Amino acid sequence: MDAVRLIGTSRRALAGSRRVPEIMTEVWQAQALAQAIGSRLAVFGPPELRGEALGLTELAGRGCGVLDTPVLADGDLRAAQLTELGDARQALMSLGSLLGEVGIALVGMASASDDEGTYWQCMEAIDAADESRDRVLEMLRRLADREHVLPEREAG
Rank of each mutant, 00 (worst) to 15 (best):
M1K: 10
H148G: 05
D134I: 05
G38D: 03
L95R: 10
A15D: 15
G156D: 09
R5W: 11
V71P: 01
L14C: 14
G96E: 10
S94N: 13
A3E: 08
R146Q: 12
S17I: 01
S94L: 08
L41Q: 00
G156I: 12
E26W: 07
P47Y: 03
R18S: 15
R50L: 06
M123L: 13
L33F: 09
S111A: 15
L54N: 06
A32F: 08
S111C: 12
W120D: 11
G96N: 07
G103I: 07
M123H: 05
V43F: 06
G65W: 00
F44A: 04
V102G: 04
W120A: 09
L67C: 02
L92R: 04
L54M: 07
D130W: 03
W120N: 14
M109N: 04
E101T: 09
P70R: 11
R19A: 15
L106P: 10
G75T: 05
I37G: 01
C122H: 04
G86W: 01
V149I: 09
T9V: 15
A110N: 11
D134Y: 08
L14A: 14
I104K: 11
L49Q: 04
L14V: 15
R50F: 04
P21H: 11
G65N: 04
T57Y: 04
A80H: 07
V66Q: 02
R146S: 10
Q81L: 12
A144M: 07
L99K: 05
E116F: 10
E138D: 10
L82K: 03
A3H: 06
A53W: 07
I7L: 13
V20G: 14
A80K: 03
L33R: 09
E52T: 01
Q35I: 00
L140G: 08
V66R: 00
E154K: 06
A112Q: 13
G75L: 10
I126M: 12
R40V: 01
Q121T: 13
Q29A: 13
D87C: 08
L41P: 11
P47V: 03
E48K: 02
G108Q: 15
L92N: 00
A34N: 06
G38R: 07
H148T: 12
M139K: 06
A15L: 14
R11M: 15
Y119D: 04
G61N: 02
L41Y: 04
P70E: 06
L49D: 02
G75H: 08
G100N: 11
R12I: 15
E131I: 00
R40W: 08
M109W: 00
A110C: 11
Q29W: 09
D87K: 06
R11S: 15
L82I: 09
P46V: 05
Q90L: 11
E147A: 13
D87L: 06
A155I: 10
A128G: 03
M123Q: 14
G8C: 14
G117K: 13
T9H: 14
R50Y: 05
L85R: 03
G96H: 07
Q35P: 00
I126D: 02
E101D: 14
V27P: 00
W28G: 04
A112V: 08
L67G: 01
T9K: 15
P151K: 09
L54D: 07
T83R: 05
G8M: 15
F44C: 01
